[in-house]
Amino acid sequence: MSLMRLAYASEATFEAKPVEKGVEPHVARILMTSRKNNARGKLVGGLYYGNNRFFQYLEGDEDEVRKTYDRILQDDRHRNVVTLIEEPVADRTFSNWSMKYVPLSRDVQRFLESQGLQRFEPASFTSAQCEQMIELIRNSSHDQKLVNHDEARTVRETPQAFSPGLKAGLIVAGLCLLGALFFAGSML
């Protein structure tokens, strides 16, 4: 069995939708399908989605990697697919990941800043930048969390403790409680 590795970049053809359960719905479906197919084909690798762009890295049996890449090339959720790396490897470097997903993280932000990149545009990565991105994915500590790359929010922002809906509900409940206390007080 000959092993190979392949990295590609592509643009998403879908318009990003509001996040559900921490990840853009189209990306969540891609991840679920990829994890199932990659586990069956004994492929390992990682995916990063940001700025409506994908960077994906695959390792495994050459035939399985090529079959998977052919499916990606035919997938209408991708356009402008660019092969960044395609070469044999002696050993796997990703273990136990059918498809690791890396959300926007300080590591990715630092990587982009260190390279003088304003946006995540992997199709223009140099060979060295591809290797750094692969290493970043490999070493990510996000352990399969499904989190969306939210371009409107920077990694320096403090996460909100309550969602807007929960905040509104708490405000309404507080106002009702005050109203009830006021009404009860006026009855005395």
Rank of each mutant, 00 (worst) to 15 (best):
S2H: 11
L3C: 07
M4R: 15
R5Y: 06
R5A: 09
Y8S: 12
Y8M: 05
A9H: 00
A12G: 08
T13C: 01
F14K: 07
E15N: 14
A16K: 12
K17F: 01
P18W: 03
V19Q: 08
V19M: 06
K21P: 07
G22Y: 02
V27P: 06
A28Y: 01
R29S: 10
I30G: 12
L31Q: 14
S34G: 13
K36W: 11
N37Y: 01
R40E: 14
G41D: 14
G45R: 11
G45M: 10
G46V: 00
Y48T: 12
G50A: 05
N51W: 07
R53G: 09
F54I: 12
Y57E: 05
E59Y: 04
G60D: 00
D61E: 11
D61C: 05
E62V: 01
D63H: 04
E64D: 11
E64G: 09
V65K: 04
V65D: 02
R66Y: 08
R66N: 14
Y69G: 02
Y69E: 05
D70R: 15
R71F: 10
I72G: 10
Q74M: 07
D75Y: 08
T83I: 13
I85V: 04
P88Q: 08
A90V: 15
A90R: 14
D91S: 14
D91R: 15
M99R: 12
S105D: 07
R106H: 07
V108M: 07
V108P: 02
L112S: 05
E113R: 15
S114Q: 12
S114Y: 06
G116M: 00
L117K: 00
R119T: 08
F120R: 00
S124P: 00
T126E: 12
S127Q: 15
Q129Y: 04
Q132K: 15
M133D: 09
E135I: 12
L136S: 00
L136R: 13
I137D: 04
R138S: 08
N139Q: 15
S140L: 01
S140Q: 11
S140T: 09
H142L: 00
H142T: 13
K145W: 03
L146T: 13
N148H: 08
N148W: 02
N148G: 11
E151L: 11
T154S: 02
T154G: 06
V155F: 06
R156W: 10
P159N: 07
S163W: 00
P164H: 05
G165F: 05
K167V: 04
K167Y: 01
A168R: 04
A168V: 09
I171C: 00
V172D: 07
G174F: 00
C176F: 11
L177T: 02
L177A: 08
G179A: 02
L181W: 07
L181H: 04
F182V: 11
F183K: 08
A184V: 10
A184F: 13
A184R: 09
S186P: 03
M187G: 12
